[in-house]
Design a protein around this nucleic acid. Structure first.
Lengths: 128, 128
DNA sequence: TAGGATTGTGTCAGAAAGTGTCATAAAGTG
DNA sequence: CACTTTATGACACTTTCTGACACAATCCTA
C-alpha cells in the first residue's frame, strides 16, 4: 500500500486503544510507528511523524514575535499530541477521545498521507 | 485485448473472491495486478493502480486544511480500497460486497480503462 | 508516603476474514 | 469429436481482529 486509503470500522478496547487495520499497519511499520494526533473540528487526524514534520515546515516562515503569527502557531501546536503504534495498536488519550466523541466504534478514513478518526454518527452527518 | 470491454457474468466464491475472466486477466497481469476498488452509488468500480493515480492527480490542487476541500478529498479517498489480483481472483472485502449488494452472481462490465461490478438486478434496473 | 483510582501496556485465545491449491465442470477451439 | 482453456466450488491453512485479562506506571488524596 502506498497511501492510506479507504474506510474501516474498527473497535476501541476498554483502555482506549485502537486496533490498526493490517493494511495501515504495514505502512506505519515501514515508515515509522511514531505519530502525531491532532484534534480537528470534531474528529482526529493522525499524521505519521514525517508527514507532520513536512506540515510544520510550512509554518517556518511565521514570526514567533508577531502576535497573530504566534496565535496561529499556538493553534497548530496546542491541538497536537505525540503518540505511537505499539503491538499494532494506538492509544488514544482520554482528552482526544472526548474531543472527537469516540466510543467503542470508530470509523477510520484514509486520506493518503494521513488518516482520520471519526465517531460514526459524526462522519455520517458530515458526509450529508 | 487492449481495454476492458464487454459484459461477463461471474461467480463469487464462499470467501468473497471474484474469478476474473481470462480476457481481463491478461490485461491485468501485464499492466500490474495492483488495483483500487471504489464504492460508487450502488456498484463498484475497479481501477488499475496507474489509472487510479491519474485520477488522484486531479485533486492535488486541493488544500487539506481547508474544510470544504478536505470534505471533497475525504469523499474521494473514503470510497476506495486497495486490492490485488491473486491466483486469478480478486477478493472483495465484506464492506464493499455489502455496499454493492453482491451475492453469488456478479455482472462485470468493461469500461475501457476500468471495469464495474454489479449485482445483476441493480444493473438491470439502471439500464431501464 | 501509603493506598486507591485512573491510565497505559503486553499478551493471548477464539472468531472472522483472507489465501493457495486442486479437482471437477463447463465452455471454447480446430 | 477430442483437446485445451477457463470457471467454479471446496478444502485446508494463514492472517487479522476483537475482547479479555494481568500487570505497570502515574496521579491524587488522606
Amino acid at each position: 500500500m502506498n497511501g492510506f486509503l479507504g474506510t474501516y470500522s474498527v473497535s476501541i478496547d476498554d483502555k482506549g486503544r485502537l486496533n490498526v487495520p493490517a493494511k495501515f499497519k504495514g505502512l506505519l511499520e515501514r515508515d515509522s510507528p511514531q505519530l502525531v494526533m491532532c484534534v480537528m473540528d470534531g474528529f482526529l487526524i493522525v499524521f505519521p511523524q514525517r508527514e507532520w514534520a513536512a506540515n510544520e515546515e510550512k509554518l517556518h516562515h511565521l514570526n514567533a514575535f508577531d502576535k497573530s503569527d504566534r496565535n496561529r502557531l499556538r493553534e497548530f501546536y496546542a491541538r497536537a499530541t505525540e503518540c505511537e503504534m505499539k503491538s499494532g495498536k494506538i492509544l488514544i488519550p482520554v482528552a482526544q477521545r472526548e474531543a472527537a466523541g469516540l466510543k467503542k466504534e470508530v470509523t477510520l478514513v484514509g486520506m493518503s498521507k494521513t488518516f482520520e478518526l471519526w465517531a460514526p454518527d459524526r462522519l455520517e452527518k458530515t458526509s450529508k
